[in-house]
Design a protein around this nucleic acid. Structure first.
Lengths: 193, 193
DNA sequence: GTAAAGTTAGTTATCGTTCACTAACATCAT
DNA sequence: ATGATGTTAGTGAACGATAACTAACTTTAC
């Protein structure tokens, strides 16, 4: 399911770029059309309406993080798993900085119920995976056991989100992967047994 | 400077409520006017244009956090200072949940350069205060010295931001002050010497 | 030659904003 | 004290711009 034609993928990509660069207010059918050098109505040959483009963006992002999760599952040790998972995100963001903006899309898509529900499904999926992995780490005595997994997950996810946010607001100036590595090294010291 | 008439304060309050409940997309002159039962043009008797309303919201929020900072400075010990500072925020949010949404306004106001610059000034102000306080704590051997103050500040701020965001998305269902206390207790264990 | 993908030229709705005007109240010279 | 003058805060109607979207026609690729 959710197979997209190459033109649809192009539209999704350009839409993500617009949101990333200018915010949701600038995501108009006209602006999307402008970026692929066609007229507005041409877009409607590929998507029924604007809502379906937004849904497609979320669908695209969901499959991306599912790939990362599966890859990180192959690592040995839960600290390594989380490291691989976050590193994977950073690498994606470096390739396509715009995708990072979807992480904060709850605010962007808040005006619509269907969209915001879908967003929170994705964010929850993310956190559930982190919590599960931390719990494994606590049981395996890799991670300190005096703090519940839920709170550790908040510290990890919260820190990374803030880092990404600052990176975005800087205009993607510095090296996120490097900064992320530093942050992870410090987080690691804090949470390990 | 930045004195507002009672009618202006009313407009600012309703605007914050709209943003909080429905997002920035629903913040229209019509909706603001509707909430105070006047017509649209009446709003222009109190603000020159919509931008000035948005700026006034940020101005209001900035003075609010400055009050909290001064109050927390009176505490003894840097861990107590940070605790007072964050607790103050939570109490404000409980009284007026809508104000919490301003914390995440970078995404909301991203479409405008003047606004987003002002937002980041406020967020930076926040973080600089936390970093300064942590550095005092490291020097005074209250806080662990193996992790730079900057990273500790990211962990603290990132965690609290994530907690608040979840609280908002839950529809302000649970007790933020209580949850915040729990989170702080765990953060405290992690950062103390 | 036909189906997919594009165009031109519109529609309707809503946005922020301005217009001309008015009712209620305050100020002040006579 | 009172009539003239000015101010404040509101109104309904309309403005130009722009949004999402559509009908009808044309181009293009296989």
């Amino acid at each position: 399911m959710a197979e997209f034609t190459s033109r649809q993928k192009e539209i999704i990509g350009k839409a993500i770029n617009i949101i990333s660069e200018k915010g949701i207010q600038e995501l108009t059918m006209k602006n999307i059309a402008g970026r692929i050098n066609v007229t507005e109505p041409a877009i409607y040959r590929h998507f029924d309406n604007k809502m379906n483009i937004l849904l497609a963006i979320l669908e695209y992002y969901k499959t991306e993080i599912e790939i990362l999760r599966k890859k990180s599952e192959e690592e040995e040790g839960c600290l390594k798993k989380i490291e691989s998972y976050t590193e994977g995100h950073f690498k994606n963001f470096k390739k396509q900085p715009a995708v990072a903006s979807i992480l904060f899309a709850e605010e962007i898509f808040r005006s619509d119920k269907v969209l915001s529900k879908k967003i929170w499904e994705i964010i929850d999926l993310n956190q559930q995976y982190i919590i599960k992995t931390i719990e494994e780490g606590i049981a395996g005595k890799e991670i300190r056991n005096d703090i519940p997994a839920e709170y550790l997950s908040i510290m990890i996810m919260g820190s990374f989100r803030l880092l990404i946010r600052k990176w975005r607001s800087s205009g993607y100036k510095y090296d996120l992967a490097k900064e992320g590595k530093n942050l992870w090294a410090n987080l690691n010291m804090v949470i390990k047994k």
